[in-house]
Amino acid sequence: MFGYIRPALGALTDDDRKRYRSIYCGLCRSLETRYGLIGKASLNYDMTFLATLLSSLYECPETRSTRRCIPHAVKPHTEAASAAIDYAADMTILLSYYQAMDDAQDEKPHIGRLRMQLLEKAFQTVSFAYPDTISRVQVCMQAIGTLEKDPMPQGEAIAARTGELLGTIFVWKPDFWAPALMTLGSSLGAFVYWLDAALDMEHDKKHGCYNPLTAMGLDARDARPLLIASIAPAAEALESLPLLQDLPILSGTLYQGIWESYNQAMKEGESPDA
């Protein structure tokens, strides 16, 4: 379920694109220096969005450096470093570990267990630093597990819990902005759950897997109103926060980027004579 929360880069200016890259590369650097190669391998767009959002909201002091790395050995690139980026790196570890645990329990037991082992040390460090976040995320994970075991799983309930999980991760500090960040994260989480269901529909049909949209009698194409209703509170929360820095990246993600894979899939699904 990773990787959907990203801006539509084609709609950004060159400067904003460079800025996004600098946060993405900064997150990669933070993961590598603090958690090694396995940390770096967990890098994803979703947590890059979180890093951008928290950097903008808290306007944390940031340092920038220009470096080269193995995939970009020729062309040097800028990397941003800040407390918000480090927090997003920690949350990347947390999410990857739980994702691996989820895999280990059902679909891919061997790869899942291997990834869990590789991430174990990094995960211990993170759980030591954020005990409350971890315990709340664990409650969500357990609830999702129980809901999924139901012979007639309730998609809405699982979507809500998935939302809560991401919302918990979005709340960096228990301060004035916590509810708005919770709204942003939880709406995005619920959106991603339905989006994933819409994009997996064909695969699930073929393999006889449970799909929450199919269970509700909806086709992937009919999911658009549900997706809009899920994401709308996130956009409202974004508008209400005093965000000035990197706003085009943030709104470009919520209003455009998160739709790209769905729109693309719907376009490809259209028959040529339709």
């Binding site: 990203r6 539509a8 880069l9 084609g10 709609a11 890259r21 993405y24 767009y45 658009r224 109103p225 997706l227 809009i228 209703a229 994401i231 709308a232 509170p233 956009a235 409202e236 919520l254 209003y255 455009q256 980027g257 998160i258 739709w259 790209e260 729109n263 693309q264 719907m266 376009k267």
Partner: peptide, 24 residues
């Protein structure tokens, strides 16, 4: 909130800006 979102969002209407390639 859904209606406001629909008005502001180009993606919700089905527009695709950068198909395929995401990061350079």
């Amino acid at each position: 909130a859904s209606r406001t979102y629909r008005q502001r969002s180009t993606g919700a209407g089905g527009q695709i800006v950068s198909p395929g390639r995401i990061l350079g």
